[in-house]
Amino acid sequence: MMRKLMLSVLIGILFSVMVRGQEDNRTSKQDYSTWQVRLRGVAIIPSESADIEVIGGDVDISTAFIPELDFTYFFTKHIAAELILGTSNHDVKATDTSVGTINLGDVWLLPPTLTMQYHFTGGDFKPYVGAGVNYTIFYGVDESDVVDHVDYENSVGVAFQAGFDYYLDDAWFINLDVKKIVIKTDATIDATTALGATVGADVDINPLAIGFGLGYRF
């Protein structure tokens, strides 16, 4: 219920900002580039925790390094929407359980994220802040020999970001971007063969995504 309410509020904010940006476009001369595209190298650093049924313990999720592509559309000089596309692979372990550390294998995360941004203008250095929503898809699960199957529920959450573009000329720029993405999942671990049980877990992943790359505006 809380997730649905949070998503509805964010969608309302995004819609109102988009409408306002379109109105600004109709009433002022467009003297800015409408589109930007960036290619970043990103470190995905989970801030993980878990509540594991029956056997207790916590979770350890590995850091991943990935390429990321994003597209930004400017409604006005200051207001923009950014869509971030990237996927990461993470090793997962249950730690400090009553039966020790359990290797759960690895899983791929695909968290397309849409944020609304405010860009500060003036000179070649242009910082920005943003907030939005993400929908994380868990796929490509590769279980270890210890467990029979691991299932992860897809996740809806919020995202926050801050960063800057530094322009090298009229079109090309370098970018530094930091995001905090809220990702939570309910995991079901079938370990019938090894442990004689199926275990549920509430897992918070909540990664910090730190990216650096090159962009082009047009």
Rank of each mutant, 00 (worst) to 15 (best):
G211W: 15
F125A: 00
V150F: 12
V156G: 05
V42M: 12
Y166V: 01
Y135R: 00
E153V: 05
G215M: 03
Y216T: 01
T101D: 15
F120T: 08
V178S: 07
G122I: 02
E23V: 07
R38E: 14
I174K: 09
S49I: 06
L176I: 11
F120M: 10
V107N: 10
M1L: 04
P111F: 10
S28F: 13
T115W: 13
S16C: 03
V37G: 09
S16N: 04
F65T: 08
A43W: 15
Y139M: 08
I55L: 04
E82T: 13
Q36C: 03
G196F: 11
Y167I: 02
G122E: 06
L168P: 12
L85T: 10
G21R: 08
V37S: 06
V54L: 08
T198M: 05
I84L: 14
Q117V: 06
F138H: 11
W35C: 00
A159E: 14
N25C: 06
D60E: 14
D124A: 09
T76G: 02
Y73E: 07
M2S: 10
D186A: 03
A209V: 07
L110R: 09
F212Y: 14
Q22V: 08
D58N: 07
N206Y: 14
I11T: 10
T193C: 00
G41V: 10
L10R: 02
D204E: 06
T193R: 11
Q30K: 15
S47N: 15
R40T: 09
G140L: 10
I55E: 01
L85D: 11
Y135P: 05
Q161Y: 11
D60F: 12
Y73Q: 10
N154Q: 06
A197C: 04
V92M: 06
L195F: 15
S33M: 08
G123A: 03
F74I: 02
T101C: 01
D106G: 01
A171D: 13
T87K: 09
S88I: 05
I45D: 13
G56F: 12
S88R: 07
Y128I: 01
P127M: 07
L85K: 06
Y73H: 14
F15A: 04
F160S: 02
F15T: 06
I66P: 05
M18E: 01
G163L: 05
V99Y: 14
D60S: 14
L114G: 07
A159I: 10
V203I: 14
I13G: 11
V199C: 07
G41I: 08
F164C: 03
R40Q: 10
F138Q: 03
S28M: 08
T113D: 08
W172Q: 04
F173S: 05
G86L: 08
A131D: 13
I137A: 03
D190M: 00
D124I: 01
W172R: 04
T95L: 09
T87W: 15
K180V: 03
V178W: 15
K184I: 00
K93W: 13
D24V: 02
F65V: 11
V141G: 01
E68L: 02
N89W: 13
I174G: 14
Y216R: 05
R3N: 11
W172V: 05
L39I: 10
L214P: 08
W108M: 07
T76E: 08
D24N: 11
Q161N: 14
M1S: 10
A50D: 07
F15Y: 13
H119S: 04
